[in-house]
Design a binder for these strands. Structure first.
Lengths: 209, 209
DNA sequence: CATCTATAGATAGCATCACTGTCCACTTAT
DNA sequence: ATAAGTGGACAGTGATGCTATCTATAGATG
């Protein structure tokens, strides 16, 4: 197919397809002449995937390129793919490791070892979590630390379900795509459900319509 | 105190403080002359809060202004504050309500009524969730729908814990600040814990170090 | 075969966002 | 007296995610 059909099938404007191709989110079409190229189903799929990551998952173009590349790239193990997907998903930023930060770090490590989690110290989510907890403490909202236990427990249960589901897929390729898609979109799903549940619970407790 | 001290105490550069003041995230200092103003502890607190929402919670300047304003603004009820905080927290975007979308919407409403949640149809998280599910289906990852049940259940339990915690605070002001802070930062905390748990679970199942 | 539309690739332009820097006429501190 | 700090206005900056335009060509249609 030509680019117009690719655009029609995916709903992505042609200039944006060109942009994504330049940025490496989508591979270029197979050239058939100096100004002609053909696209196939793999392009359709890849483009849809790219759009989903960017629009729904909220990934930056750079992050989306990273996860898309590693998903279909050289044969990494599932665990390696997860690690790199998580790395790509987490915005990096430099931090100042003051006293409050180190205390929060110790608390995170306590939770992790308490639950028997085996997690690399370089996992970027660890840093993000420590930052969030340190901020909470600096603001004097220490009481929220009490619900970290339930939060961690819930996360653990959900992770078990997710992995079980992924393993049901026969092919490695399907597992990897599922991993990438769900790592990115699952966050949105979980966040939304949490907000809905909060409103429901707040209505139950405070509300009196 | 003068602006230099405000900057020192919060770690926010002076030009940024001026910018935040212009944008309404922080109230202006109390004027004592044509080019002099004084700041107090309320400014320190407000500025720290603003920074936390922007840097850790990832809110835009406009969203941060909204939640900060409603937090200390005219006396809204807890429920109203939650609603507006959620509204400010969710990026709005226009959507196309095609067949897949409507089907996803029905599924979301089914989950909500199944759990007996009372949720306004206008809750922005509802739209976000529907979008995410529709995208998942368009990509052919329907099997993830199976874990929506556990996800919703987890969200419900967490929401109950959060509200219980908030209610322990005596003053309405504390409740509202906690609500805003935790609505924004809790998302980061939960997302991080989920990623950590995923790595731990993946290591347990796939790993063989 | 003429003509019209479509195309690839290159380059430039645009809008938004979150700052950051500069300037001025002033205080305030030493 | 002099140096440093200040509030406010406004301009500039760098990153990001597109869009628009241009050119030389290719395919589609009468």
């Amino acid at each position: 197919m030509r680019i117009a059909e690719l655009s029609r099938r995916t709903g992505v404007p042609i200039p944006t397809i060109k942009y994504y191709t330049r940025e490496g989110l989508v591979p270029p079409g197979e050239r058939t002449g100096p100004n002609q190229a053909r696209y196939d189903e793999t392009h359709v799929r890849r483009l849809k995937l790219a759009r989903a990551l960017v629009e729904v998952g909220g990934l930056s173009i750079a992050s989306a390129r990273e996860v898309l590349t590693l998903m279909s790239g050289p044969g990494l193990s599932t665990l390696e793919t997860l690690g790199k997907a998580q790395y790509a998903l987490t915005p990096r930023k430099e931090r100042t490791e003051d006293e409050t930060w180190r205390r929060a770090a110790a608390e995170v490590d306590a939770i992790v070892s308490e639950r028997g989690w085996q997690v690399r110290e370089s996992n970027p989510a660890r840093g993000t979590l420590i930052d969030a907890l340190a901020t909470l403490r600096r603001l004097g909202h220490d009481d929220f630390f009490e619900i970290l236990g339930p939060y961690a427990e819930a996360a653990e249960r959900l992770a078990a379900d997710e992995v079980k589901l992924l393993m049901r897929r026969g092919d490695l390729e399907g597992v990897l795509e599922g991993l990438v898609v769900w790592t990115a979109l699952g966050e949105t799903v979980l966040a939304s459900l949490r907000l809905l549940a909060e409103e429901a619970e707040a209505t139950r407790v405070f509300g009196a319509f």
